[in-house]
Each structure stands twice: as C-alpha cells, then as structure tokens.
C-alpha cells in the first residue's frame, strides 16, 4: 500500500500534491476556529497592519485582528459557498442541458433560449440583484451563485449530449426498447461526464471568485465574519501599508483553486475506462 502511494507520488507529483493541499484546506475548514492561535474578532488598535511577528505569524489587519486566525475561519464560508453552488449548478444544469438536447423540440427550445437569456446578463449583475433582495448570508449566497452557473452547465451538457446522441450505441439503446430514464442515466450521463467534471472544477474556482467579488462589494459574507474574498477586498485598500495582508488570502485562494483544477483533471481520466491505466 505504502509502496503504491510512493509510486503514485513519483509518477504524478502534481496530483498527489494537490490532494494534500485539498486535504489540508478541508481540515482547516472543519477545525478552523479551534486551530486559530488568537480570537479572530478581538480588535487591537495598538497593532494595526503589522507584518509577520512572533505573536502574529502572518501579521494583523486594519483593526489589529490576527490574520492567520481570520484566514483559518474564513475558509469555511468560502468552501461551503463554492462547493454548494457547484453541486446545485451541476445537478440542475446537467439535467436541463440533457433535456435540452434529448427532449422534445419545444422543450429544448424553451430550455436553451432561457439559458441564452440568462447567459446574456453578466453574472455579477444578477448576483447583485438577487443578493440585494435577499438577506445576505452563506445560504443565500450559495443558492444565488449556484443558480447563476446553471446556464454554463446546461450549455456544456447540451453540446456534449448532442454529440453522444449521434453515436450508434444510442440507436442500439432505442432498438432494445430502453426507457428514457435508462438512456439518460446509463447511456448519456457517463459519456458526457468528462466535460462536466472539467466544468465543475472550473465552477468551484469561479464560485470562489464570485463570492470574493460579492463579499468585496459588501454583499456576501457579513462582517465581522471573515471570508477570503472579503479579506482580499478589504486588504486592497492597505496595499501600501501592509502588502502581505493581500498576499496571504490571495495565495491561499490561488493554491486551492489550482489544486481543485488538477484533481478534477485527474478525476476525469480516472472516470474514463479508456484512459484508465492498467
């Protein structure tokens, strides 16, 4: 077992490293508050915008709160929003896309034109509208971002399904008298999984960025609760005094998104029996 893990680490270092990064991020999300060396909400006017020091490893923010502690507890809302939104958009978007490609003409007309209309608005604008009417918080943010990415999944699933439905094995399924449910879940879905997985990894990354954007505009996670995006947004104002303030959350965000993309890529290969290695 250990030798296999070692062999995997040697043949695919990027994949193993990404898995490790994700594991650490997940661990921090679960036990963030407990790991934090300081109380993330304690203000300290004597020590604002400080660099790294022995007591504050990553420095402090504009109110003198410990950055490391805020980063640690800021993971949870960021991850919940990103993963939740991805699940919502993946499930509904894929089903809509498949229905749009495989369903009756009027149904596919309705679905795909609705998707076009949604895609023609910038997502941040729609999110602003929705969040503006709703109470802002983790749940509403998750739902809003999830719904916003439905059209993207629907588009990807739609075009992939169109390709699959032209293949002969679809004709073979019909000739055997397969039910619609069987065709969708055993013939279409497994064969469009690759682009969907790629789209999902992209959506996780995009959702984190959108969450950051909304929090940056003050419409996402409500202060004093921190999230990475919100921290990046605030830190921008203090670039001159404390450049590390913006670098730490950005670095973590970039690393997480990169790890998710690498793992997603590998996942796609593992799911395809043709690319699986003996």
């Amino acid at each position: 077992m250990t030798s296999r893990t070692l062999g995997l680490a040697r043949s695919q270092p990027a994949f193993v490293a990404s898995l490790a990064v994700l594991a650490i991020v997940l661990l921090m999300a679960i036990s963030g508050g407990w790991l934090a060396p300081h109380d993330p909400f304690t203000l300290n006017p004597q020590a604002v915008n400080q660099g790294s020091s022995a007591s504050h490893w990553l420095g402090t923010d504009e109110f003198g709160r410990d950055l490391l502690s805020r980063l640690l507890i800021g993971i949870r809302p960021t991850l919940i929003v990103a993963l939740g939104a991805t699940v919502i958009s993946a499930v509904f978007g894929s089903l809509l896309g498949i229905a749009g490609a495989y369903g009756r003409p009027w149904l596919s007309f309705l679905i795909m034109r609705a998707v076009d209309i949604m895609l023609s608005f910038p997502p941040i604008l729609l999110a602003l509208l929705a969040v503006g009417f709703w109470e802002s918080g983790v749940l509403s943010l998750t739902v809003v971002i999830g719904v916003l990415y439905i059209p993207h999944f629907a588009r990807v699933a739609h075009s992939a399904t169109l390709q699959v439905t032209r293949q002969e094995f679809m004709e073979a399924e019909h000739a055997m008298g397969a039910s619609v449910r069987r065709v969708v879940f055993t013939a279409i879905l497994p064969n469009i999984l690759s682009p969907l997985v790629v789209q999902a990894t992209l959506t996780v990354a995009a959702a984190i960025l959108l969450e950051s954007g909304l929090s940056f505009l003050g419409l996402g996670i409500v202060p004093p609760e921190p999230s990475w995006g919100q921290m990046i947004g605030t830190a921008r104002g203090y670039l001159g005094q404390n450049p590390m303030y913006v670098i730490w959350p950005s670095l973590l965000l970039a690393l997480t998104v990169l790890a998710i993309n690498v793992v997603g890529d590998r996942l796609r290969d593992i799911l395809d029996p043709r690319l699986r290695e003996e």
């Binding site: 094995f169 004709e171 073979a172 000739a175 055993t186 064969n191 395809d272 029996p273």
Partner: peptide, 20 residues
C-alpha cells in the same frame, strides 16, 4: 416487439457504449 427484433450495427466501435 423489441424483444423479437434485434439489430447488429455497422460500426463495432460506435455501437457499444464505451463506459460499460
């Protein structure tokens, strides 16, 4: 009748679902 009539297609590469 689908039980009674079966079909073998031209392209042995396309007529089998590659994921099964």
């Amino acid at each position: 009748f689908r039980r009674e009539i079966a079909m073998v297609f031209q392209n042995p590469y396309g007529s089998l679902n590659p994921r099964k």
